[in-house]
Write a protein that binds this DNA or RNA. Structure first.
Lengths: 210, 210, 210, 210
DNA sequence: AGTTAAGCGAGACGGTACGTCCGGTCTTGAA
DNA sequence: TTCAAGACCGGACGTACCGTCTCGCTTAACT
């Protein structure tokens, strides 16, 4: 759920094949709905945001939402991806040859995004909603988590090739070890979520606590 | 949110002072409600569990729930603490002198608890509910997260005293680094949650990825 | 509250102007609600009839009742008017030229209606409900009591023109004197409510007790 | 329901025989309950007056009400009789030898009582409640309506003896004819309830409309 | 250019659950 | 034993939304 704003919708086509004739779709309404959804979640919180409320705020009939999205969470997922809509793919992680520096750069950016109230709320909501909604979890995995994992693994493999990391390192474990602490502090509030924390996580993860 | 079942209610007194006359409270109803809540969450999931449903299953008036708990999440929090109700305090982490071994023991136990369907569901629900409900977050912090952090810090300080960890180590960071990956994998499903994973997390956190 | 079944809704237009878009209203639901209301009041009495119960019996959502009626009494008022719904206006009282005979005819009919269990219960309920609910009282006055008073006055004026009643008679007083005793006996149970009683009331009211 | 304030409880004994040991009864609580009931009905109306509310206002436990009265209406009935509690019996109607004058006197007094907001509300409530509550109806008949009918019949019989009324007059009919119009206008609001109206009713009832 | 079928706004519909109020019963401790 | 206090089970309240549906209107695509 980090750097979401640079993701793209990778599977628009497949998504739309199961849908009504998308060519007739009102772009005006789509934008209004996604914007209204973000606004309401920011103002009132996810739990107090209803589809009825989104429709009213967007000046749209309820059916127009139900026609294009299966759930409130799905609307929000699209809303989060709104800024990165025109992008061609996920921007890869920086690769300057210095793994620690690159990771610190990325984690600092993530910290910034998590502290932006416009995205923090919806992302918290999504992160929790996918626990209860399998269909949403699939969307989340394919369109957000998958691409993020992909570019992270790319960077880590590059580090392995450069000898910065062991060749036999379990990449999934490495990702949990680097991004897990950030995630934990974000959701649990176990401490301040700062750039310094991001740096310390990277150093500790790479070199160990002792 | 791990090893919850060995926690105690640390602040019963304060809690009850703000409540209706607790001496007249029906212990029978209280037990029935907490049990029904766990049952329903296990059977149908948190989202499909309603207060009305809990009351019906417990054979209790709705008002009896509203009288003693402010929200569905608060009921669940008490329900999770039900097994540890008589305990005098939180059991401290094991301290054999071998930090890595002790942590592996603890994380394996946590993994077991997270895979127990009776507790996984409610704990997922709570972990997400506290993101939206500040009052619940306070309860969570005071009654679950705080005590857990406490015993973890105790064990880490002991390791510092024994020279196993640097004396100037940021303990909050250390906790995030050790328990964060577990938490991440639990909620994000980024990989299998196994005893082997627990072991690998401990080793990597202590010695670093490289 | 007599001869209700021959009344019409005199102010449909005004009534609907203040309502939700009435053109989309489900006639099926409306009928089901009114019928269920009458059934339940007949079976269980007004006090034990709940809006929830009406909705359940009618196979209708509660909101559908609350959308179109402000109170249980209002539903019942419409329910009482259901049989006369298509009528063009209130049927005038008979005018054969013999006031006493005509009034006896009318009062006997009223006695019959008040003894019909399907209407007696709801009408008792309404007659009492309007004492506590001003909005309902207005509806009652406009749609039931007003038209009834109107046709009674017409008949009495005709009698004045025919010289059967003094030209300066206070018509409101006359109506109270003729229908009041019936009303009193109906609600107070001060004696049997029979055709003979109706006849005696007419004779006594017209000629005096002494 | 007229001149209630001069009635007495005619059957205290019988009433109490079915009750808990009345000797222990707290007179202070009884007074407080009856007063609170009248107050609340006057302030908020009968429908919005709850037994719970009466208990709270009277500073009394709910059980104390349920112990001594079977229903809200029964409380109100006692409350209405509170002022006449010490009386020995119902005061007979005046008998000056002039029936019309005496009846006008009585009906004017009744009009005054019906216009007193402290009694109008409760009496309306009772008049309607007895329609739905048979047990209350019995109490009403025995303790209010019966005695009133009694003294009215006494006066009418006196008039028969004096030749002011036919010897074969149906007294129940006569009572309906005299008091019915008042009752009708009171509950239906079919016109102003004034002393003039009372006079006109007496004249018309005695001499006929024509 | 006219026809037609979709998407659209609006919002009524059958439902479920909410959180509250109160009914009538039961229990506790003080007087 | 009564009382004030108030917890208890239960049922109904009136409201908020759910997801589905139907109505006319608008609008784009294909005659």
């Amino acid at each position: 759920m980090q750097q979401v704003s640079s993701l793209v919708k990778t599977d628009r086509l497949v998504y739309f094949l199961a849908m009504p004739n998308a060519t007739r779709r009102s772009e005006r309404s789509r934008q209004a709905i996604l914007t209204a959804a973000l606004d309401l979640v920011e103002e009132a919180g996810y739990a107090r945001t209803s589809i009825e409320g989104i429709a009213a705020r967007a000046g749209v009939g309820k059916q127009t939402i139900y026609r294009w999205w299966p759930s409130k969470g799905a609307v929000l997922l699209d809303a989060l991806l709104l800024p990165s809509e025109g992008d061609e793919g996920v921007e890869p992680l920086p690769d300057t040859g210095d793994l620690a520096a690159d990771l610190k750069h990325v984690l600092r950016a993530t910290v910034d995004e998590l502290r932006n109230p416009r995205y923090d709320g919806p992302m918290r909501a999504l992160a929790t909603e996918i626990l209860h909604d399998p269909a949403l979890h699939v969307q989340w995995s394919e369109r957000i988590d998958g691409p993020l994992t992909e570019i992270r693994e790319v960077r880590l493999r590059s580090a392995q090739a450069a000898g910065e990391l062991p060749a036999d390192l379990d990449l999934a474990l490495a990702i949990d070890l680097i991004w897990g602490p950030l995630f934990h502090r974000w959701l649990q509030g176990s401490g301040p979520l700062t750039a310094e924390f991001a740096d310390a996580v990277v150093d500790s993860a790479l070199d160990g606590l002792r």
